[in-house]
Design a binder for these strands. Structure first.
Lengths: 344, 344
DNA sequence: TCGGTATGCTAAAATGATTTAGCATACCTG
DNA sequence: CAGGTATGCTAAATCATTTTAGCATACCGA
């Protein structure tokens, strides 16, 4: 097994000091007045023998690991998987690697993960925060570590944030339904206090209020399994239906919409004739489903762009003026109108 | 900002040497004959002040980073996203973090990524290899680094591998179609030479041959965009249809099946009356689609289990006897019969 | 009383880089 | 020709651990 090359090997071969080699490799040749000819010789040799500095040693000395921690609610959810893919790509281009994990929106697990990431000295944190981690995040910020929150914020936490205009998204989705002649519109959401979910609720309620329509809510508790979800939704819809009080549903997340479609199917309701359907967050399935499903789409690529830009921004900035400015990007959603809301 | 605690702080406070603290923290107290009382005092203080060793320094000294590199073709593909989620979970339980990236099945990119992972000194490699990285992987193995290939193998590479019985999967899918009375069965696959794709092709061809039926193939070139894929599939199916030579299709991957369903939809063919449809690799959509789509399901959880077990196995083993034994797990697929192949 | 060994701990090297402080030498200026 | 400055480089400290080699002291048996 070939021995790994050290910086001292390079220095020895050229009969110069380690310091000089280090300066040259770190682009400080000019600044440190190393002659051009020596610089060239060093770079040539380094190239020839394919010397690569030991990143662990570098990290120990500099405190930088060129690694970003990415914590999403669930990496297997298409929305997050797509974001993760884009973030990864852009991060690699900037020389950063990504360590990821899924929080499952579990406070204790997330706190643990944050602490593990710290132990590993990641340079920056991208987080979709569960409730109850405010203090941990504040600590990160207090220590001058770059943090970008994604998808949802936490109250009272002045931090860089990237998300969409959820209120507007569900407002316009509701307006769209109303415009199509639907009046008895229900919202199926989760019980969570996550900011983005509250905003989606707010948008729906505002649109309904604006038209003097009565809101109808189903809030699914958080840790309900997929199987239990469908009967719950069925019961809710069926009940409204019995009272002739339902002609459309807005689902507040893509997985709720998937379960919802199954529920609607089992109740043998026709879409869009019996009920109109809109999902928040687009999904491959919505294009393909018959009838295709109208959805509030989030601009995945733009989100990922903003996130990584904010992160790189902070990573580039000198640590001093870190906490001074916080950026916030609230991106617009777009309503993709498909057949599930088109009455004929 | 509170100063980070060092091992020397612990030593100083108790008036003992750093060495002793280190031994105790690394569970070598007994072995090194440190008295129980001192051991207890050290552990107590460590607990009280919440001292945590600097992992960078540990890694530099030991050469272990407690990090596993995961390279999949595309982290945003549901199949890989699900696997990634499970692997992450199990890895964390064993104290390992995951760095991931998407190879896009691009040789040059992957070689680059492998080299980056090496620079970062990951302890183990989980890879879905694109063609042309045989040498790089051989090098990893030669250096005694744990490697587990996932989903596909490379010819002439004796390595730990986890995948499914692809040949059997598509064989039985084809048999199923034939059992339902379909005879003019086409296979839509990719042009790639990836082992798993070749096996799926082989299974199909064997089943067809076994019943003296003529195979009909469409091989989609690799870097075709989603939009270009649909017209290609349409043309292929339509052509066969014109010649009255099509009554069922087997799609060799889940994304091909998705595009395929769109194509079938546009051609206004009815499923399963005009064409039966089977997908390789299950997908949420297949349950929900009308009619629901029969699929060859891969046992995601079992795959992830095997992968992480093989990996941890190697990581635990002393480096010496590393390369001696290689494990291979070929898991069975299961055919989930749904409406898309049920003629009435 | 002396050699052997068990006990309980530690000094110092090693891991592989970056960075601070500074040393010669040459050159220039007045 | 003294004194200052620019040039071109380097010795040694530093980052925070782990690990090797070994040092006192006490005790025991012969």
């Amino acid at each position: 097994m070939k021995k790994k090359l050290l910086i001292s090997d390079i220095a020895k071969q050229l009969n110069i000091s380690i310091t000089t080699v280090s300066f040259i490799l770190n682009g400080k040749a000019k600044e440190k007045r190393i002659s051009d000819s020596l610089t060239a010789r060093v770079l040539k040799l380094v190239e020839e023998v394919n010397y690569k500095p030991n990143q662990l040693a570098q990290s120990l000395r500099t405190g930088k690991t060129k690694t970003i921690g990415l914590m999403v609610e669930d990496i297997s959810n298409t929305f997050f998987a797509n974001i993760a893919r884009l973030i990864e790509e852009k991060a690699y281009k900037a020389g950063y690697k990504i360590i990821y994990c899924s929080t499952e929106d579990d406070t204790a697990k997330t706190r643990d993960l944050i602490s593990m990431f710290r132990d590993k000295h990641v340079d920056g944190y991208i987080i979709t925060p569960p409730p109850g981690v405010e203090e941990d995040i504040k600590e990160l910020i207090a220590e001058g570590l770059p943090v970008v929150l994604l998808d949802r914020t936490l109250p009272g936490l002045p931090t860089n944030f990237v998300g969409v205009d959820n209120r507007m998204g569900s407002y316009s989705a509701t307006e769209h339904l109303i415009g199509q002649g639907y009046k008895k519109i229900a919202l199926v959401t989760t019980e969570s206090g996550q900011s983005q979910m509250l905003q989606r609720l707010e948008g729906y309620e505002q649109a309904m209020a604006h038209h003097q329509l009565a809101p109808k809510l189903l809030k699914i508790p958080f840790r309900v399994t997929t199987e239990d979800m469908i009967p719950k939704i069925m019961a809710f819809l069926d009940d409204l239906r019995q009272r002739d009080d339902l002609d459309a549903v807005l689902f507040a997340t893509n997985y709720l919409a998937l379960r919802g479609l199954e529920a609607i199917d089992k109740l043998e309701l026709r879409v869009p004739a019996d009920v109109g359907v809109v999902g928040f967050d687009d999904h491959d399935i919505f294009r393909l489903y018959k009838p295709s499903v109208t959805a509030v789409a989030q601009p995945t690529e733009a989100i990922a762009d903003q996130v990584i830009n904010m992160m790189l921004d902070q990573l580039d900035t000198d640590d001093r003026k870190q906490a001074t400015t916080t950026q916030t990007a609230v991106l617009p959603t777009s309503l993709i109108v498909r057949n599930s809301t088109t009455r004929r």
